[in-house]
Amino acid sequence: MLAEIASALGAIRTGSDIARDMASADSLDEVQGKAADLFGAIAEIQQQLAAMQIAYTSLLGERDALDREVAAMKLATLDRQRYSLHALPLGGLVYRFKATNGRADVAHDLCVHCYDLGTKSVLQPNGTHLVCPTCKLRLRAKGEASPAAKRGGVCLWSV
């Protein structure tokens, strides 16, 4: 962007010099000779301004993309604060949802591997295991599955 500004300022300076020479010309022929140079300088200025406008528009697009990325990162950070690392009774780690007052979210556990990659993958009960539907990780949970898990419902694995 600085190169475009410097180039435009140079073209403006050239046009200004030509206009000054036209003002000090002694004859109509000199003025007409300088007019062609002045039109060329004006065309150069317009070209430089158009290049600056394109660069400016590109910078605005980049800024907007960065603003969206920052907003997404803030939202992800807030979401990550809703989970804490939890050790299962028979080994293995999960990210457990921290229940908060007034929230209607269902308690659930997330796969540590997927969570660290930026994906929220809810572990699903399958017999005596919790299974990640994304990476297929299997964690042995406490003893036998609860009746809710056997029915395919929600099962909270307690310590």
Rank of each mutant, 00 (worst) to 15 (best):
Arg140Val: 11
Ser58Thr: 05
Arg151Val: 01
Thr14Asn: 08
Ala65Val: 03
Gly153Ala: 06
Leu85Ile: 07
Lys98Asn: 10
Lys120Gln: 00
Glu69Val: 12
Leu90Asp: 11
Leu130Trp: 12
Asp29Gln: 14
Val94Trp: 00
Pro125Arg: 01
Leu123Thr: 03
Glu144Asp: 02
Pro125Glu: 02
Gly61Met: 04
Thr134Tyr: 10
Ala65Lys: 07
Pro147Met: 07
Arg82Tyr: 00
Arg82Gly: 06
Asp64Cys: 01
Leu75Asn: 08
Arg140Ile: 14
Arg103Trp: 09
Asp105Pro: 00
Ile42Asn: 13
Phe39Met: 15
Ile18Asn: 05
His113Phe: 07
Asp109Ser: 15
Gly91Phe: 05
Glu69Arg: 15
Ile54Phe: 06
His108Phe: 05
Asp37Ile: 08
Gly102Asp: 04
Arg80Glu: 11
Thr134Gly: 05
Ile54Ala: 14
Lys150Leu: 11
Pro147Cys: 05
Met73His: 12
Ser7Ile: 00
Pro133Arg: 05
Gln46Glu: 15
Leu117Trp: 14
Thr57Ala: 14
Lys136Phe: 11
Lys120Trp: 04
Ile5Arg: 12
Phe39His: 09
Ile18Asp: 07
Thr77Lys: 12
Ala50Cys: 04
His108Leu: 03
Asp29Glu: 15
Ala99Gln: 11
Lys120Cys: 03
Leu28Asp: 10
Gly10Lys: 12
Leu85Gly: 06
Val122Glu: 05
Gly92Phe: 04
Met1Phe: 01
Ser146Tyr: 01
Gln48Lys: 14
Ala6Asp: 14
Arg138Glu: 12
Gly153Val: 06
Trp157Tyr: 09
Leu78Ala: 05
Ala107Val: 10
Gly152Lys: 05
Gly143Pro: 06
Cys132Ser: 03
Glu4Ala: 13
Arg13Cys: 03
Leu137Cys: 04
Arg13Lys: 13
Ser16Ile: 15
Pro89Cys: 00
Leu49Ile: 05
Asp64Lys: 06
Asp21Thr: 04
Ser158Cys: 08
Gly33Phe: 02
Leu9Ile: 06
Gly153Arg: 10
Asp79Phe: 15
Glu62Pro: 01
Ser27Asp: 15
Ala3Val: 10
Leu88Trp: 02
Ser146His: 01
Asp64Met: 04
Gly153Lys: 07
Cys135Ile: 08
Arg103Asp: 14
Tyr115Met: 12
Val94Asp: 03
Ile42Glu: 15
Leu75Asp: 09
Lys150Pro: 02
Asp109Thr: 03
Ala149Arg: 00
Pro125Lys: 02
Ala76Glu: 14
Glu69Asn: 10
Glu62Leu: 11
Lys136Gln: 13
Thr57His: 08
Asp64Glu: 10
Ala41Ser: 14
Gly127Val: 08
Val112Trp: 00
Gln32Trp: 06
Lys74Ala: 10
Glu30Met: 15
Gly92Asp: 01
Leu66Asn: 07
Met73Ala: 15
Thr57Ile: 09
Val154Pro: 06
Ala99Trp: 04
Ala51Glu: 04
His108Met: 09
Asp79Tyr: 08
Ala55Ser: 08
Leu139Gln: 01
Leu139Tyr: 03
Met73Cys: 10
Thr14Tyr: 04
Val112Asn: 00
Leu78Asn: 03
Gly40Asn: 09
Thr57Val: 11
Tyr83Trp: 15
Val131Cys: 11
Val159His: 13
Gly153Leu: 11
Asp109Tyr: 11
Ala41Thr: 02
Cys135Met: 10
Ala41His: 01
Ile42Ser: 13
Ala35Glu: 13
Thr14Lys: 08
Val131Ala: 12
Lys150Tyr: 06
